[in-house]
Computed example of a mutant assay.
Amino acid sequence: MQDLIAHASAAAGIEPEVAEKAIGAILAFLRKEGPKPDVDELFATVPGAEAAAAAAEHAGAGVLGALMGLGGGLMGLAGRLAGLGLDMTQMEAIGREVFVYAGEKAGEERVRQVAAAIPGLSQFL
């Protein structure tokens, strides 16, 4: 997971701490929106994915998280990432890094299956 954080931080031009939170938010989004069996298999093969998603879910549990999460789906995720101070270009860079990393660990086909099951997500792959 530290490799992913370093690559995402460099790709987006942000601090590693922010990249770590953004990665966690993306993984928590996949956990919430994706098909459970496919996401479970994906997380089982991506080291640190479960812990990062859980940390993001816990961090988003407060009042600010509730306000940021008013929108669901991709718009809700974009709102949460914007709340971390990311612009659209940075969001896309981090998202790309997450999917490349997951593809390397779990296989590109599994990543495509998860993305295809979430409305609008496959356009970013």
Rank of each mutant, 00 (worst) to 15 (best):
A61W: 14
D40N: 08
E41P: 15
A49H: 08
P47G: 07
T45M: 11
G34Q: 04
K21A: 13
A49K: 07
K21D: 11
V63P: 03
K32L: 00
A59S: 09
G24L: 13
P47D: 11
E33S: 11
A66T: 00
K36H: 09
P47H: 10
H58G: 10
F43K: 04
L42P: 08
K21L: 13
K21V: 11
G65W: 01
A25G: 14
E57W: 03
V46Q: 02
R31E: 10
L64Y: 00
V39I: 06
K21S: 10
A25K: 15
A44P: 02
G24I: 06
A51G: 02
A56C: 06
A28E: 10
A52L: 12
G60S: 04
G60E: 08
R31G: 07
G65Y: 02
G34I: 03
F43M: 07
E20S: 11
P47A: 12
G48T: 05
L27K: 13
A52K: 04
A52M: 09
G48Y: 07
V39A: 04
K21H: 13
A51N: 01
E33N: 06
I23Q: 08
A49Y: 08
A66K: 00
G48A: 11
A53G: 13
A61R: 14
A44I: 03
P47S: 09
V39G: 05
E50H: 08
P37G: 00
M68V: 13
I26P: 15
L64M: 04
P37Y: 02
L42H: 11
E33A: 11
T45K: 06
A54Y: 05
G60T: 00
F43A: 07
G69L: 06
G60N: 04
E57M: 10
D40K: 12
E50P: 08
A59W: 07
G65I: 01
L64K: 00
L42S: 05
L67S: 09
L30N: 04
G48L: 09
G62H: 01
R31V: 03
P35A: 13
K36Q: 12
D38G: 02
L30C: 05
L64N: 03
H58L: 11
A56K: 04
L30G: 11
A25V: 10
G24V: 14
A55C: 01
E20A: 14
M68Y: 10
P35S: 15
D38Q: 12
E33R: 06
M68F: 05
L30F: 08
G24N: 13
A44Y: 07
E57L: 11
P37A: 01
A59T: 03
D40A: 04
F29Y: 14
A22K: 07
P47V: 09
I26H: 12
H58M: 03
K32T: 01
G48M: 06
M68N: 12
A44K: 06
A53K: 13
A25N: 15
A49R: 06
P35D: 13
E33P: 04
G60I: 02
G62F: 01
G48W: 03
R31K: 14
R31Q: 13
F43D: 09
